[in-house]
């Protein structure tokens, strides 16, 4: 797999410092499975955390805390290394726990105009959902009030930035207004995670937004 679009360093730092919401963190993990480049950046970001941990002003533990933990050591088994289960490679292992390994078997909700969605229903601010977009369909122009991450799982699309194929991520913030269009005769399925709602612009957006509820 040739990946040509990666995360912004600022996003990987947010992942490393543990400040992304669940959907966005899951999307980052899914891409990391496929991308050594971003994995390396995350390991570097983790080092910032490690360095800070050495420098932090320690806060004493309660007396007896070590003995408490020592008394528990014999009861815990060493954790078995994670064996990657065989699964349909189309769905990253991190995602399988939430959506299973068959994209076609999901309970897709039709939103009209060649778009279907599957909401992962994580709750909280923002959202994580899969979009399934038919060939030639273009998602209305929209901007973001916060950050939006997209990971392509099947097919491809193009927008003002470039062409996005399987494994690629789009890492967008409120600076940008874009209008992705599915650019082959195959459908495109992507995972989208945001930390706040999307805003559609233009008349089209005003009509569509209440309807698809994005």
């Amino acid at each position: 797999m040739k990946i040509s679009h990666h995360f912004d360093d600022a996003t990987l730092i947010a992942y490393s410092s543990g400040t992304l919401n669940k959907g966005m963190a899951l999307l980052v993990e899914s891409h990391l499975e496929m991308c050594e480049n971003c994995m390396e950046q995350v390991q570097t970001s983790n080092r910032i955390g490690g360095d800070l941990l050495r420098q932090i002003q320690p806060v004493a533990m309660k007396s007896g805390s070590l003995d408490q933990v020592l008394s528990m050591l014999d009861d815990v088994e060493p954790e078995a290394p994670v064996v990657s289960r065989s699964h349909n490679a189309e769905v990253p292992a991190s995602l399988v726990e939430y959506i299973g390994d068959d994209l076609d078997a999901l309970d897709w909700k039709t939103m009209g105009m060649g778009v279907q969605q599957y909401d992962l229903k994580f709750g909280g601010a923002g959202a994580a959902r899969l979009l399934r977009i038919q060939p030639g369909v273009s998602v209305p122009h929209h901007t973001h009030t916060g950050n939006e991450l997209t990971l392509i799982l099947r097919g491809s699309y193009s927008d003002e930035i470039g062409r996005f194929q399987v494994g690629d991520v789009a890492d967008l913030d409120d600076q940008l207004e874009h209008q992705p269009i599915v650019d082959t005769e195959h459908e495109c399925i992507c995972l989208i995670a945001t930390d706040s709602p999307l805003k559609f612009s233009g008349l089209m957006g005003k009509l569509v937004q209440p309807f698809i509820g994005l």
Binding site: A10, A14, S17, G18, T19, D195
Partner: peptide, 11 residues
């Protein structure tokens, strides 16, 4: 510091 020490999101 705000990211790593206080767990603050970018927003």
């Amino acid at each position: 510091y705000l990211s790593y020490y206080e767990g603050k999101s970018h927003s």
